[in-house]
Amino acid sequence: MSIQHFRVALIPFFAAFCLPVFAHPETLVKVKDAEDQLGARVGYIELDLNSGKILESFRPEERFPMMSTFKVLLCGAVLSRVDAGQEQLGRRIHYSQNDLVEYSPVTEKHLTDGMTVRELCSAAITMSDNTAANLLLTTIGGPKELTAFLHNMGDHVTRLDRWEPELNEAIPNDERDTTMPAAMATTLRKLLTGELLTLASRQQLIDWMEADKVAGPLLRSALPAGWFIADKSGAGERGSRGIIAALGPDGKPSRIVVIYTTGSQATMDERNRQIAEIGASLIKHW
């Protein structure tokens, strides 16, 4: 067993022997301040990774656009098919120029040779490549099948209805392509620590998230040296922004954090800054 596999296998073990965790309302004060600064709703939840206990939450059962955070769930569904012998990570998928959609920095470079399922998941999570996500959605049967996968996990809230990039439209009061912070946090925890996926697939999923290259201005910008984070960000229309993450000190994750916002007129930089400040408060009061 590799060191990384050992780390993920012992996530519940280490967490069980940690000192009790206590909620700190100071972080919620910052979440509410972010709402004021952005002029928009902000949803927040913080779960203990081992027990699933909610440590703090704000608007945990209000719907927010998922945006690209759905790509972690998508690759979880792909990995479940791999575990069941219905898919192979090494299978190569070929596609054409007509398949390319807006923001496809990886797939646009491989029109000639195609990409493997493993490479597509890596591109979808680490670079948020939209064509990679659409190609992977095709392998599982489309958005409705991802929703069905989530329902089978016990998540009857999260739903995907459309493809990239239309799913980022974020129309107010439109339930399409949305989740709730509580539902997303619980589902992410199941994917990373539950028995739904094999140990190898859980490790692969967290490795992809740990290698995320496009979430630097968010929670990662607030992390002290030595902290662990595996995350996936999302951005959408109407001032929408979000991030889902597993993080913790001492090089291992111990909490799940989900943050979503929508309806702001603020710039992307300002949305990023507010999420980073929430992260800084979380870490300060850990």
Rank of each mutant, 00 (worst) to 15 (best):
T107P: 01
L136Q: 01
S264G: 10
F14Q: 03
E108Q: 11
R255Y: 02
R271C: 09
S264D: 04
E56C: 08
P60G: 15
H110W: 08
M209N: 00
L205D: 00
N134M: 04
A23P: 08
A15M: 15
A84T: 14
S68V: 00
D99Y: 07
T138E: 15
S2W: 09
F228T: 07
I3D: 08
F14T: 10
L160Q: 07
S201T: 08
G242P: 00
F228H: 06
D231N: 05
G90M: 13
P143Q: 06
I3V: 08
L38C: 07
G239Y: 02
K32Q: 15
D129V: 00
Q86S: 12
P25D: 10
A133F: 01
F70R: 02
N173I: 09
L120R: 00
R118K: 11
I244F: 03
P217G: 09
E56V: 08
Y44G: 02
V31F: 03
E145D: 11
E210A: 10
D269N: 12
M127I: 09
P25C: 09
T193K: 15
R241M: 04
A34G: 07
K213L: 13
Q88M: 11
T186S: 14
G154V: 04
T178F: 02
F228R: 07
E46H: 08
M153R: 07
R176T: 06
Q274T: 15
I11V: 12
A266R: 13
E210F: 10
T262V: 05
L160C: 11
A84G: 13
G194W: 08
P12W: 12
G85D: 10
L74Q: 02
P143H: 08
S57R: 11
R202I: 07
E102K: 08
I256Y: 03
T126Y: 04
N130Q: 04
F13H: 06
I3H: 12
G226N: 12
A84P: 03
R255M: 05
E175W: 13
M153N: 10
S281N: 12
T69V: 03
V21N: 06
G76S: 12
V117E: 02
L196Y: 15
C121P: 00
R220M: 03
Q86W: 10
Q88D: 13
R118T: 14
T147G: 09
A211T: 10
S122N: 15
T179E: 00
M153V: 14
L49Y: 12
N50T: 14
S57V: 10
